[in-house]
């Protein structure tokens, strides 16, 4: 019974992390397609991302229930739930950002597209490294640090790309409200990297806790 429950839970946690990782990749596809003007593909992937976010939510709740119902991992339960809940913020922010693109349909100037793609790339790479760090937290504590290092690296790169983008935006000779709108999108995309960093901080502390 105990072995069966833990096996189910291991599968659910793996599926949850797969979903978050897939969400990050789909988000990148969404932004690429939006910047390339492929609006139909963008919408298709946006809906897919929304569904992935729903799936992640439902998996997370299932994991929470199972962990408490069967009193599994009493020592690490709080930490594990903390990690899983904060990871949910990553995919949640990605979904909200893509939805904003779909609602506001901002006009991204040609000269900013490359920088936008760079920002999105760093953000998604950070999220993928975060998923790997989380998997390592469950199976291989020694490897956690390597993945966390990458999360922090990509977050810095994303911040730098966001700053460059903002500078380019405010150098443009256009209306301030348009600049504000573009900056708003830059901030939202960059927020995904910030969310990843926040989860990474948690994992770092919990890893120390487990190794002591």
């Amino acid at each position: 019974m105990l072995f069966k429950q833990s096996k189910i839970l291991i599968n659910e946690i793996d599926e949850y992390l797969d979903t978050v990782s897939e969400g990050a990749l789909v988000f990148r596809q969404c932004i690429d397609e939006y910047l390339n003007g492929e609006k139909e593909k963008f919408e298709t992937h946006r809906v897919a991302l929304s569904n992935l976010e729903k799936k992640a939510d439902s998996l997370r709740r299932g994991i929470e229930n199972r962990l408490y119902t069967h009193s599994l991992m009493p020592e690490n339960r709080g930490d594990v739930l903390g990690i899983l809940e904060s990871i949910d913020n990553v995919i949640d922010t990605a979904k909200k950002t893509s939805t904003q693109f779909s609602i506001e349909l901002p006009e991204i100037p040609e000269e900013l597209r490359r920088e936008f793609i760079t920002l999105t790339m760093h953000v998604t790479q950070g999220a993928e490294s975060l998923v790997l760090a989380t998997r390592a937290f469950f199976r291989d504590l020694g490897a956690v640090k390597d993945h966390l290092h990458k999360v922090y690296f990509y977050e810095k790169e994303a911040d730098r790309a966001a700053e460059n983008l903002n500078r380019s935006i405010f150098k443009m000779g256009c209306d301030l409200c348009y600049k504000y709108q573009l900056r708003h999108f830059v901030i939202n995309v960059d927020k995904i990297a910030d969310r990843s960093e926040a989860v990474a901080d948690r994992i770092a502390i919990y890893t120390i806790k487990r190794t002591v």
Binding site: L2, S6, I10, I13, L72, M73, V80, R139
Partner: peptide, 17 residues
């Protein structure tokens, strides 16, 4: 535990047993 890279949940179960 470090060598076999046992999943945290499985480790919990082994521990309990």
């Amino acid at each position: 535990v470090n060598k076999l890279k046992i999943h945290l949940l499985r480790l919990d179960t082994y521990n309990r047993v």
